[in-house]
């Protein structure tokens, strides 16, 4: 565990907290993409299957990972529940039209071609990595459709992007300190994922500087 990874994970937790705070305080999920949330649910549930096989108390790290995995899975399920049931009437269904079936299909095909070992567990893991790299796209498209973004929603996406950026620093750190090689899959997808946020970062920082709400062109 290094400071970049810990910082990344903490930003991830903050982003989830901001997401739930936005829904609970405004009693609305306007501006949020249910499709992105569903994709994250799929990502977490295909990647964290090892929860069934790993003893949480094996080491301090597995304990930490287990807590975080359960947190991500449960908060993700809770967010979907809030958007689909309690605040359904505020959900912007008309604009949330990104076709996620194509993303899922593409990630599945890529996972069948590129994986580290030919096992169900490894293919699902690769699938989750591919899918995570594009899971934010429906959210970004929704924002582009509607134009102006609520502050808390833009902070949410900024934290998610920050988490991914810190993970890259973490990998560079581990490459040199632990001499880890052969991680092209996670590194490649992680870099693509971070690049997807680049455009958003630009407009986010611009809007912060001007002290205005974020507007996407």
């Amino acid at each position: 565990m290094n400071i970049f990874r810990l910082g990344g994970d903490m930003l991830h937790v903050v982003s989830i907290f901001l997401l739930l705070l936005k829904i609970q305080t405004s009693h609305s999920c306007a501006g949020l993409s249910l499709k992105t949330q569903i994709l994250y649910m799929v990502v977490f549930s295909t990647r964290y299957l090892d929860l069934f096989f790993t003893k949480p108390w094996h080491s301090a790290l597995t304990f930490y990972n287990t807590i975080m995995k359960i947190l991500f899975l449960s908060s993700s399920a809770y967010t979907i529940y809030l958007m689909q049931k309690r605040y359904k009437h505020t959900y912007d269904k008309v604009h949330d039209t990104f076709r996620i079936q194509y993303l899922i299909a593409a990630a599945a095909v890529l996972a069948l071609i590129f994986h580290l070992r030919l096992t169900v567990f490894e293919i699902l893991w690769a699938f989750s990595v591919f899918l995570e790299s594009v899971a934010i796209l429906p959210q970004l498209f929704l924002l582009q459709e509607t134009g102006e973004v609520e502050n808390i929603t833009s902070h949410y996406i900024f934290c998610l992007g920050g988490y991914r950026t810190l993970y890259i620093f973490n990998w560079v750190w581990r490459y040199f300190t632990e001499h880890r090689r052969n991680q092209w899959l996670a590194w490649g997808c992680g870099t693509v994922q971070t690049l997807i946020y680049a455009d958003f970062f630009y407009y986010y920082i611009l809007s912060r500087k001007q002290g205005k709400k974020l507007r996407l062109p």
Binding site: F72, L116, R180, A186
Partner: peptide, 10 residues
């Protein structure tokens, strides 16, 4: 070997 594949991350 799981250790090599970054599976100790989230």
């Amino acid at each position: 070997e799981l250790k090599d594949e970054l599976k100790d991350e989230l």
